[in-house]
Nucleic acid binder design. Structure first.
Lengths: 232, 232
DNA sequence: AATCCTATTAATCTTTCATTAACCTTTTTG
DNA sequence: CAAAAAGGTTAATGAAAGATTAATAGGATT
């Protein structure tokens, strides 16, 4: 049996939203429907979606802005934009090569399913490729991977080697849980009681370093691991 | 595998900045996104960019003014301006000291990639002269690669062979980390404990030589390497 | 061969940083 | 709800890395 993919549909129009979620449900997708951007953000935090379908015109926020925030929560999520405007299409068409696509309204449901599957299949094939970003952004902080520098609004913050390694791992997976095992095996090479104690110390240090931006927090998930949370 | 070019995109508009950096990332560019001119200046100091894409209208500074400042930091950097205004070519003529191009908004991303590649290819043909830069400038010091001379405001400072090699490497990568491995393999050919000890001695010598300009410092990044930092 | 120059090695001192310990707070479990 | 486990924070410690100066050795030059 195929994996049942979980989608979030962000659409303020009730009729269209209902119609699409029903239709996609019939097509064996697990659909969560959010009517506002705010709702979408909350839902993204508490669900592991495989794909997001966003109306670009929402009552409370621009769809692109929303996509950015969602990406902050779940960086791997592919997007499918629903747009009535033809204006932005020239901006979006370039994305048809990557994990972003768009559809013009009115929506053709069959076409929608084709696009969804295209995005999902692309995701699974490119899962292996490692991303080597040279900078990670977290709120007003920037972590530069080339010179091992952390900056808060251009102010340099000195990090030790292990502090940097840990923050880099958390930043790479921001808003996603890093398990104890994952952290300890990548940074300490060994997953034992004493290294776990050491990890706690470093988490504490990093919290101090990141204290200047209230939107950032390193949260503990009891018995599982840590997560760098970046709030919108 | 092709070299991954590193670009800085200076764009205050969140939606456009996000879309472009995502798109260029997909096109296998390493993109660093700055939202303000000030941010751009800091990032230019701490990254070795191959190209800069500047919005001409920024909240804190005019894009052309910014380009001049960036040019002061990285003189070889080619520019690509994004402009809403229909600019006449003669305005850009003043900038044709280096590789410069411009694109009108709204941006056609495919066109953007074509222009970027055009600028970069122009760069690579003249890469020969970049590698053989005859002088490096660090604060009030000048390192002449042709006659192996270091000068502080015209005052000649005598360097030994290894001192020169090391300073040249650091100067070429100023404000960027040079790892122990990088230094030892390029200057000593072998990366072992004793050469590392020797490196420390030379760093100490160079610090004395560079002491006359307080803005210069050779900083150590524990267990990673050294960096020639040039302030302001 | 004596002198000069320079890179390496040695010796010594200082700094840095990961670990450990100690103690406190929060969460989980029985 | 009490005991136990896990997590949080700060400080002490010691080993490793780095900085600096001096000594040595080896090659080149005269």
């Amino acid at each position: 049996m195929d994996k049942k993919y979980k989608l979030i549909l962000v659409e303020d129009d009730s009729s269209l939203g209902y119609l699409l979620s029903e239709y996609l449900g019939m097509k064996n997708f697990n659909v969560v429907w959010a009517k506002t951007a705010e709702e979408a953000i909350v839902k993204t935090k508490s669900n592991a979606f495989d794909l997001a379908i966003l109306d670009v015109m929402l009552p409370d926020m621009d769809g692109f802005e929303l996509s950015q925030k969602i990406k902050g929560i779940n960086p791997e999520l592919p997007f499918l934009f629903l747009t009535a405007r033809s204006l932005k299409i020239d901006v979006l068409k370039g994305f048809s090569l990557g994990a972003v696509d768009y559809l013009k309204k009115p929506i053709d449901e069959e076409e929608l399913v084709v696009r969804i599957n295209a995005l999902l299949s692309r995701l699974s094939t490119s899962e292996e490729e490692e991303e080597h970003a040279s900078e990670y952004y977290m709120g007003d902080y920037t972590l530069n991977m080339d010179n091992f520098e952390l900056r808060y609004k251009n102010e340099l913050i000195k990090l030790t080697g292990k502090e940097f390694d840990l923050l880099a791992l958390l930043a790479k997976n921001q808003n996603q849980l890093c398990t104890h095992k994952e952290i300890l095996t990548t940074i300490w090479d060994k997953n034992d009681y004493f290294n776990k104690k050491s990890l706690n110390v470093f988490v504490s240090h990093l919290r101090k370093h990141l204290a200047k931006d209230k939107r950032l927090s390193i949260v503990n998930v009891n018995r599982r691991g840590f997560m760098l949370r970046v709030e919108e």
